[in-house]
Amino acid sequence: MRLILHVWRQKSPAHAGQMVRYEHKQVSTHMSFLEMLDVLNEELIAKGEEPVAFDHDCREGICGSCGFMINGVAHGPQPGTTVCQLHMRHFKDGDELYLEPWRASAFPAVKDLVVDRSAFDRIIASGGFISVAAGSPQDANCIPVPKENADLAMDAAACIGCGACVAACPNAAAALFTGAKIAHLGLLPQGQPERYDRALNMAAQVRTEGFGSCTNIGECEAVCPKEIKLEVIARMNRDFIKASWTQRGDAFRNESA
């Protein structure tokens, strides 16, 4: 089939970008979306033009490298699906598709459809981990966890850090991403000791990075390829509020002492 693609082309952060129109005549319905772009790129290279840059790696929907907007929707029209797992049979001959990078001031442009998502890395570095004093090795079977908590933690742990939630959010907030981390670690016994510090530190980093604030719109949940639920944001907020109160309480006690 034949597609009309409008692709955001931007040489580098220093250059201005623009939409460029391509007619793609060699699209097979068996292809994945990224393969369709591979073929476009090979044609561009053959013509002596620069190929379209986009991030990808596993092409199995599990690494979180890929992601861009297709007609204004993060990862395109299929719910619960990354662009690498999106297949061309969901499109039809003559479709016009607009491909744009994630847009958020916390995700600066790199090239074409590639943006720099290292803000996520810094949010994790600010507290998204567990710290346990290295003790004598015991039997791994010794951390019993109720299956119910384990399942909840598992859903939150499915986050692949692709950034679709930020791209979809009108406020460019990073609440679903940060919430998934906080909910996940906060549900595990290993994650308890720093549970409240984690919430405070990560929230502070989110602000430093310039993400917007969450106003519970829910666009993030709708585009999340791992179908992470808004519930993680509620959990994060609970931990955050509790942590803030404790902190205030401590300050109060210190002052009066």
Binding site: P137, I143, P144, A150
Partner: peptide
Amino acid sequence: APAVVDELEKRHGCYFDRHPDGRI
């Protein structure tokens, strides 16, 4: 390998599937 599985859970926060009684 057994000690590394243990380390992945205890020191790094991995969490593998459990039996209902809590064993891996």
